[in-house]
Write a protein that binds this DNA or RNA. Structure first.
Length: 442
RNA sequence: GACCCCAUCGUCUAGCCCGGUUCAGGACAAGAGCUUUUCAAGCUCUCGGCACGGGUUCAAAUCCCGUUGGGGUCGCCA
């Protein structure tokens, strides 16, 4: 039975890198009909926070990575201490005076338990990288239990992976240099050594580690921006693995069928916002309008709390969302690009105003408004008909009038078809906004 | 600095393990065109890559060595 684990520490949000590690573990478990175990590495009591734990759990659930078992290291301190005592008794470890003193008190802490590292060659057989050899003479003796009684990362990790019967340790490349230290511990404790698979790191555009400074990193941020979980998972999947046959859009079920950890890439990948935007766009196109409206509703209410009419008229909202479904990359784009439907505070882009509204169009706007007002059935088709008739009479091209009207109504030079926009805006709003550009007396 | 990992278009990748079927395929981005009611959608096209140097071989993106470049780790953090 395959058993894998994801072991986040609640000292920060679940970020892109962690999510990718979680994904590959989860996928491997599903592909091999194994178990996916979640282990919270919360031994650092100063930095661990409940908010982070909640955030991590929520993000994992949102992405769809359900776990079969969950453990908290803070509840297992006795286990680590017992194993450390054993190494002490066997002479594999020794006590060392604390190098720290408790703040504000001269009370010394208890002694730390330190593992003796003997020089030897350690070979790991990585499922992704192949054989990697280390000379442990460059590794210092390792602290097992700190002066405050809690275990160090490498020790807790080994004890847990062994006692939780983890068969495959799938984690980031940055842990490669921890692996020889851990193997020494496995051997000293008489544990069976699991398989290792070290995934390449995800780099930021500038080449270094992904960090807050280089853009969005937390999964929760992506959710807020209006990315869909399926899209995020699909993108993460492509970062370091390929289903082959030039396929890019692949759902998680299909991926689980094809996935194997040994096919994972060994080269670090750069996170690309353009591509994830494109993938999200693909998934938005595939979503039903119903689902999109469900997701959008709370976002819109929060952003435009004063616009009540739309939220009660679901039919109208659906029509409106449909206008944007094909063009937005994120749900957040809709809030931005379609803002003029939900607020009267439209900002007309100065360059656009200069280009399309510098010329006096009072009479054209007035005439167009007159026709609109007279319409018996206010529909997209009738609006267009009225417009077409008008430009024939005025002997101008449609674009000469369409662009100025769009800018006056929406503040933007791009958007859905103008007649759709007018229809969803309604007669009243159209009149008010066009009137602003009609000089008195015309 | 020491140790370790990595190296195909700007980016993600297919091909590499099992050398010839590849003047290296796809996607994103970029550029051009079409659409003409705009584009931030759609369609068509274009640009662009095996890091470098040595081997091995009839033949190397593919195997070996080195160089260079990038990344990671060196905590009583995880």
């Amino acid at each position: 039975m395959i058993r894998v684990r994801f072991a986040p520490s609640p000292t920060g949000n679940l970020h892109i890198g962690g999510a990718r590690t979680a994904l590959f573990n989860w996928l491997y478990a599903r592909a091999k009909d194994g178990k996916f175990i979640l282990r919270i590495e919360d031994t650092d009591q100063h930095r661990s926070r409940k908010e982070y734990l909640d955030e991590i759990l929520q993000s994992l659930s949102w992405l769809g990575f359900n776990w079969d078992e969950i453990y908290f290291q803070i509840q297992r301190l006795d286990i680590y201490r017992a194993y450390a005592q054993r190494l002490l008794k066997d002479g594999r470890a020794y006590l060392a005076a604390s190098q720290q003193t408790e703040e504000g008190s001269s009370q010394p802490l208890q002694e730390a338990i330190v593992f003796r590292v003997h020089p030897q060659r350690v070979r790991i057989n990585d499922l992704i990288h192949g054989q990697i050899e280390f000379d442990t003479s460059v590794i210092k003796d390792q602290v097992l239990i700190k002066s405050d009684g809690t275990p160090t990362y490498n020790f807790a990790c080994v004890v847990d992976d062994a006692t939780m019967q983890i068969t495959h340790v799938i984690r980031g490349d940055d842990h490669i240099s921890n692996t020889p230290k851990q193997i020494l511990l496995y051997k000293a404790l008489g544990f069976r050594i699991p398989e290792f698979a070290h995934l390449p790191l995800i780099l930021s555009k500038s080449g270094g580690r992904l960090s807050k400074r280089t853009g969005a990193t937390a999964i929760s941020q992506f959710r807020q921006m209006g990315f869909l979980p399926e899209a995020l998972v699909n993108y993460l999947l492509l970062l370091g693995w390929s289903p082959g046959e030039n396929r890019e859009i692949i759902d998680i079920k299909e991926a689980a069928r094809l996935f194997d950890i040994t096919n994972a890439n060994k080269t670090a990948a750069t996170f690309d916002m353009d591509k994830i935007n494109w993938i999200n766009n693909q998934y938005i196109k595939g979503y039903s309008i119903e689902k999109l409206v469900d997701l959008l509703m709370p976002m819109l209410r929060q952003r435009f709390p004063r616009t009540q009419s739309y939220y009660s008229d679901r039919q109208k909202l659906q029509g409106l969302v449909k206008l944007y479904q094909g063009r937005i990359n994120t749900l957040g784009d809709l809030l931005e690009w379609a803002d003029f439907f939900f607020t009267d505070e439209i900002n007309v882009d100065p360059a656009a105003a200069q280009r399309y509204l510098s010329q006096d169009l009072s009479s054209e706007f007035s005439l167009f408004l007159e026709r609109i007002e007279k319409l018996e059935h206010f529909e997209v088709a009738t609006i267009e008909k009225a417009f077409r008739e008008l430009i024939v009479e005025l002997n101008i091209s449609s674009r000469q009038l369409i662009h100025p009207i769009r800018v006056a109504l929406t503040g933007k030079t791009v958007g859905p078809g103008l007649f759709d926009v007018i229809f969803y805006l309604g007669k009243e709003v159209t009149r008010i906004r066009l009137s602003r550009w009609i000089k008195k007396g015309s």
